[in-house]
Simulated assay, not measured.
Amino acid sequence: MLSYRHAFHAGNHADILKHLCWLGVIQHLKQKTKPFVLFDTHAGAGEYPLNDDFASQNKEYDTGMTRLLDTQAVSPLLDDYLTLSRPFWQQQIYPGSPRLMAGALREQDHAHVMELHPTEIDNLQRSMRRLHNEAIHVHHRDGLEGLIALTPPNPNRGAVLIDPPYEQKKEYKQVADTAAKVYSRWQNAQMVIWYPLLSGRAEEKAQACQSMLDAASQLGKNAFCAELTVAENTHDAGMYGSGVLVINPAWQLDEQLTQAMKEVAGQLGPQAGFSLRWLKTESM
């Protein structure tokens, strides 16, 4: 259960989608001066040296972040993402969601980052300790359990990033159940749930993922899913892309994410494509 190490996949296509969306959520929260609270349930190591044994094994960043390095972004969201990321890239480091988040926080904001893996939590604590920011709280605990325990926050403005490895099929239902419990007590939360796009050889997990999307998308007033594909969906393709489900998205986040991701897809190769669809539009 604790075998997953995100360093194998650092900087790949899934990270780009996930982190662009998460940054877009944060930037919208910053449009008001009121403070907010962020939660990252599967924070990982915080940052990933590209010369690390794990990251350099498959070099997934070469088909992801590396292709964006020289991009002159038209999209303001993509430009913000590249501006935050480039100082790390110059040091041959990919910044995970906690480091990107930390770079976007203001003095009045707070964050809770959670990680259960015994090695990853050590790396995360070191990464966050270097920031000397007492507003970022690091928790060595199960992220879904921690999210339920720590919400609703005070103040109750804020957002959640849920990004499990989905090593086991049951994790999809656990995510849906957690989202429902959080929403029942914190109804104005924005939630970002990352998920893989899996081909026919992983049919049971793909069905579990669809069930999760069906259930979680009904929680808020509005919800959309945004998906990036990087390969043809053949039976044996495996993970051919990924998506994010956004519950209670901020106004125009869909347009800003679409503009950014279409630029990204154009850099990732001829098989890359992006789509966004609304799953619930109760109050637009």
Rank of each mutant, 00 (worst) to 15 (best):
G266L: 08
Y240M: 08
P270F: 15
I121M: 03
K262Q: 15
L228H: 13
C209K: 01
W186F: 07
M239S: 02
P196N: 03
H42F: 09
R201I: 12
P95S: 11
H132W: 15
G158K: 04
K173L: 14
L198Y: 07
L131G: 08
P98R: 02
H42Y: 06
G241N: 07
Q72R: 03
S211D: 15
L197C: 09
P270L: 07
W186S: 00
L124Q: 06
P155V: 05
T33Y: 15
G269S: 04
P95Q: 12
L68C: 05
Y61N: 10
E282I: 14
G273C: 09
D15T: 02
A226G: 01
T83V: 13
P76S: 11
Q108E: 09
D142N: 06
N154R: 07
S56R: 05
V175S: 01
L68K: 03
A231M: 13
L150A: 03
E167S: 01
F274P: 14
L219T: 05
C21G: 10
M1I: 03
Y48N: 01
M239R: 08
L124G: 02
N188M: 06
L257D: 12
D254K: 03
K169G: 11
L23I: 00
Y4E: 03
M101Y: 00
A102R: 02
D122K: 06
A215V: 11
E107R: 02
D109I: 00
V244W: 04
Q72G: 12
L116C: 13
K170C: 12
A208S: 07
Q187A: 04
D214H: 14
A179I: 09
A73L: 05
N123S: 13
Q218T: 03
R99I: 08
P196K: 01
A237F: 13
L131Y: 13
A260P: 11
V244L: 09
L198D: 14
M212L: 10
K34N: 15
A179C: 10
L38W: 00
L82K: 05
C225R: 12
G24Q: 08
R157W: 10
N12T: 02
Q27A: 09
L147Y: 05
A10T: 00
D177C: 04
A206R: 12
W251F: 12
Q72H: 09
Q190W: 10
A231C: 14
L50Y: 01
M128G: 07
S127P: 07
V25R: 00
L69N: 13
D53M: 08
Q31H: 09
M212E: 09
D15S: 02
P249R: 06
I247V: 08
E255W: 11
M114Q: 04
D109T: 02
R129G: 11
K169N: 11
D52E: 14
I247N: 04
M261G: 07
F8H: 09
W194H: 06
H139C: 02
S283D: 15
I16W: 05
A237L: 10
M101P: 11
D70G: 08
A202C: 14
W194S: 02
L2W: 13
I193R: 02
M261R: 07
S211L: 15
A189S: 09
I16T: 06
A189F: 05
A180E: 11
W251M: 13
A215G: 14
A272F: 14
